[in-house]
Design a protein around this nucleic acid. Sequence first.
DNA 1: CTTGACCTTCCCGTGACTGGAAGCCCTATC
DNA 2: GATAGGGCTTCCAGTCACGGGAAGGTCAAG
Lengths: 144, 144
Amino acid sequence: MNIGEVAKRSDLPAKTIRYYEEIGLITPLRDSNGYRAFRESDVHKLIFLGRARALGFSIEDCRALLALWADTGRASADVRAIARQHLAEIDRKIADLSRMRGTLSHLVDCCAGDDRPDCPILEQLSAEEDAPAPAAEGTRSRPA
Amino acid sequence: MNIGEVAKRSDLPAKTIRYYEEIGLITPLRDSNGYRAFRESDVHKLIFLGRARALGFSIEDCRALLALWADTGRASADVRAIARQHLAEIDRKIADLSRMRGTLSHLVDCCAGDDRPDCPILEQLSAEEDAPAPAAEGTRSRPA
DNA sequence: CTTGACCTTCCCGTGACTGGAAGCCCTATC
DNA sequence: GATAGGGCTTCCAGTCACGGGAAGGTCAAG
């Protein structure tokens, strides 16, 4: 099977498939003319990869998941550990974005949005004072 | 003022400040010894940039915001438009992540997480059918 | 004079691809 | 047999927003 058909069946761009080979996630055979010759197992792996990536797993996560997938004697706890770690990271990202969203939507609400130059958004971004620190002595904490 | 003190005052790494000069967000003067000589206005810009970046604005958004900031006759609507666009993007990202979170936490809940090789997470990722992964439906969202 | 902190430029690396150029391979048609 | 086209190959460069580290100049203190 050539790369074009594999791309269709896995719903991944050919470029991505070549990249996955380059970093060792798949190792298709080669025809005598130099074309990649994919097996069914390669297609299955690529579909697996596409789904895992769509769930936000990193490439290295995917590499580990593929290894566990191939290891029929794996413990489900190993897979679950990766998934839970990823879940925690997703939660962190959502929390970060929600904080941004809160601040930003407040600013947008405060802004008249008309022809006048008066703009609370810019005012806030350029304010002299740092954000009011409750216990402002000594340490300067940075937001992650 | 040298870059070290500016880094402290703006709470940005020196590397980042040099980068911001390279892409034209700031243009500090130079001392005779080749050292960058920052003015107060540069520090203000950097603090502005740090806050805008912390709110997730892209560099190009920041460039536009800086220009509007410098333009005392700007219309607040212009600033608000950028902020609202960014807000919409944040909402989109949160929605994507929430979908991922839903699918993933469901899978984690289904997984025994013990020593047995039986694992619903891998089963789902390698399922024959193309339909049943909610987060993988329709748009193939790539996590940033 | 030496030490050490600070500054400079330059280049490479990140993650996960994407775009494009230059060129080979295969099939079909004229 | 020549040619057109599509598909395949490799390699190079770019993305975004920096971070790491090398090689070397500058400055103040001891």
